[in-house]
């Protein structure tokens, strides 16, 4: 499977903006790295609590 096919779901997020074939190659080279990066980060933080940050009024209580 070529990179364009493999990452079709990601390229669909470009909202129809078209790039030259050379640009697409550069974008795909980085996009192809995203899943590796995420896998490494997932392993790194697997025992870390999910952060939570609510938008609360100043002072904490209404």
């Amino acid at each position: 499977m070529d990179l364009k096919e493999k990452h079709a779901h990601r390229l669909a997020m470009l909202q129809g903006v078209e790039f030259s074939p050379a640009d697409i190659d550069e974008i795909l080279a980085e996009v192809d790295d995203i899943e590796r990066v995420v896998a490494e980060l997932e392993e790194f933080c697997k025992n870390t609590p999910w952060f939570s940050q609510q938008t609360q009024p100043e002072g904490g209580k209404v």
């Binding site: 990601r10 470009l14 903006v17 999910w50």
Partner: peptide, 16 residues
């Protein structure tokens, strides 16, 4: 363009 292809769950993993 690369940033636009990152999903919400992937972003949240980075925040974790």
């Amino acid at each position: 363009a690369v940033g636009l292809t990152i999903s919400a769950s992937e972003y949240l993993t980075a925040q974790r």
